[in-house]
Design a protein around this nucleic acid. Structure first.
Length: 160
DNA sequence: GCCAACGTTGGC
DNA sequence: GCCAACGTTGGC
């Protein structure tokens, strides 16, 4: 099997919709409902099983990285886009040529405390991280290995 | 709840 | 293909 270096991502979710605790309970979850082309492209074209994911809680108190997950299944068509009554329904998505894709995500670790966005902004080495850029609204974004490791360290040291 | 920043839509 | 209007995201 052809292999490639493990890549790293950040995925946002509002805790009210789905939290790291929900993920810990479920073990694996589906990541449906992404309706942004750039985020879709990332999921569909770049995510591979085993890639690392920073689980980011948006619209939270505080917002920040709540833990770690990994890609459990590579992209497949988002079935909710075809369900008329569903809030993720998109009449323009053709089942024979789906517009929207989703991946599955597996729980890896919950940080003792959330790493707030403010801490990410202050941390050394994270100045170029997508999520700290002003006006960054992408719900699925790439993270470098270096950034991933720094955030991991921040998350683990909190409760110590 | 406010509002700035951004993506998408649609008229032309 | 431009760009104004609109809807959404998401920090605060």
């Amino acid at each position: 099997m052809a292999t490639r270096a493990k890549r790293y991502w950040l995925m946002k979710c509002e805790p009210e919709a789905y939290s790291i605790d929900d993920l810990e309970r479920d073990g694996v979850t589906t990541w449906e409902g992404v309706r942004n082309f750039q985020a879709r492209n990332t999921m569909r074209d770049d995510m591979k099983v085993g890639d690392g994911v920073l689980f980011y809680a948006s619209n939270a108190e505080p917002s920040g990285v709540a833990g770690v997950a990994e890609i459990a299944r590579e992209a497949y068509p988002d079935p909710y886009a075809f369900q008329k009554e569903h809030k993720y329904f998109d009449p323009k998505s053709d089942p024979d040529d789906p517009t929207w894709y989703m991946v599955d995500v597996r729980f890896v670790e919950k940080f003792p405390e959330i790493v707030p966005l403010a801490a990410l902004k202050e941390a050394k080495g994270l100045a170029d991280m997508v999520v700290v850029q002003k006006g960054s609204r992408l719900s699925v974004q790439p993270v470098t290995r270096k950034e991933f490791d720094i955030v991991l360290k921040l998350g683990r040291q909190k409760g110590a």
